[in-house]
Write a protein that binds this DNA or RNA. Structure first.
Lengths: 262, 262
DNA sequence: CGGGACATTGATTAAGATCAATTTAAGTGG
DNA sequence: CCACTTAAATTGATCTTAATCAATGTCCCG
């Protein structure tokens, strides 16, 4: 009954590096922000707000970036909330480990996602944010964001919505865990990824899973063997092809139906 | 596999009344707010902000209250977000019903809770809020709250935290559903209620469950028969006494241990 | 004092966990 | 560049938990 897994989770601390010793990129400007075109770049908007008002030119406010190696932690549960982060490239897992050592992956943020929201309630992060591949984030000092929200109603609403979106995401995952059986959960999970891929301009049919079977299992409240079995079952049913991390959705409609609980 | 329950959910539409036809109480003031003493009354704070500034006296801003009969809906999924509500007395269930008719109770707010946050992301509520007993809420026009947040950093942070708290709650429930077996889930659920009772000044050992076994089951992702069996099992183990909705926790430490996953 | 919602209990079945053994692929260092 | 090491994934056999189906009991309310 819940044998506290000693989280052998391979892709972790090897190249962790001491705190602070991480590659830093030149600051980001609205011009160089690749997300800006999609109207999804909080950083870029913050720059423009600063620039538009009676403030110094945005370059003084341009936000620094940080690169993460695979397995490296962006922040850990218990760290003080100093920054939010917008994910510019790569992907991350947000993990909670409870007292008994049982772990749960609460989300797999990808490009465009805002990270660190789990620290807003108490001022201390409650999750570990671990890079699933080499990634780039842009650092947004929370104080900066809070003061912007204060002067600008639009930015305030945007922050509110970002936090509310986080809640939404958990509500959705909750439904998945509470109402669906294992096969349906996996299907729903894959559909979610597929939609996110499409939203980011990639193929919704073919993609590479950045996380292990164990990560998926810890996300969906099941065992990794079950995830594996369900993949093969879906392959046998000609719904998808899976070879290791490479996924090819053969029958999106079928997958959608299964993920919705028939 | 997921036989879409036709939600016979007894305590519902009988005395629903047409929209708008509900008992209204006189407006609330900081003086009459029972929650204010605990520093938890958003309404009272809003009044004082208005009153403190160059605004009209708070009486012009005092917020109206509304009573709900058991089974009545405060709002429903799909309704436009106009107000947040602070729950002054009673208790509520927040329910999501998905396309296949499967339902999930995402929370059981009680006295002091802020309701309607599920509408902030999109401007449309995503849950049904159903009173579990006769209840009183105070209506907070969202526009009012948003503009207060704009002028007052403290209020802004408070709203942010309220939304973040919602996310926190779901994260916690997520852990419960994903990592614990049925017995542990029920124990965890009861401990949560116990703590909430204590926080509101009631006995953490003895209380009455306002919700049915089916509601609990729909909250914890299991079947009502299982909930019932686990209650009797915990009673047999001398952890608690349960007679219908009346609960008496005999061994809080044991219950806590079980709820934490041993 | 009924009627109906709510709750309990029992017998059986099915889904997923667990235990265990391979297989496959990806790095790593010689 | 290849052999070696190790992490990750697959597959099988068995066991446990909770779902399912069904009957009965109890209490609340009119």
């Amino acid at each position: 009954m819940n044998t506290a897994h000693t989280s052998a989770g391979g892709n972790e601390p090897q190249h962790q590096g001491p705190p602070g010793r991480h590659t830093s990129l030149p600051p980001l400007t609205p011009e160089t922000c690749k997300l800006a075109v999609k109207g999804a770049c909080l950083v870029s908007d913050l720059c423009q707000i600063k620039n538009g008002g009676s403030h110094p030119p945005f370059s003084a406010y341009a936000f620094s970036r940080r690169t993460l190696r695979r397995g490296e932690a962006l922040y850990r549960a218990g760290d003080a909330l100093l920054n939010l982060y917008q994910l510019y490239a790569g992907s991350v897992k947000l993990r909670i480990t409870n007292l008994s050592g049982i772990e749960q992956i609460v989300s797999f943020p990808t490009t465009g996602a805002l990270l660190g929201i789990d620290g807003i309630e108490t001022g201390t992060y409650t999750c570990d944010a671990i890079a699933l591949e080499d990634s780039v984030v842009c650092m947004i000092p929370f104080s900066e964001l809070a003061s912007s929200s204060c002067n600008d109603a639009k930015m305030a609403l945007r922050l509110n919505r970002a936090i509310a979106h986080e809640a939404s995401h958990y509500r959705h995952l909750l439904m998945t865990l509470a109402c669906l059986n294992s096969e349906e959960r996996v299907a729903s999970f894959l559909m979610d990824i597929s939609e996110k891929m499409a939203a980011n301009g990639y193929s919704p049919r073919q993609f590479v899973l950045k996380m292990t079977r164990e990560d998926i299992a810890h996300h969906l409240g099941m065992k990794l063997e079950t995830v594996s079995r369900i993949f093969t079952r879906l392959q046998t049913a000609h719904v998808l092809d899976v070879r290791r991390r490479h996924l090819n959705i053969r029958d999106p409609d079928a997958l959608r139906k299964i993920g919705a609980g028939q």
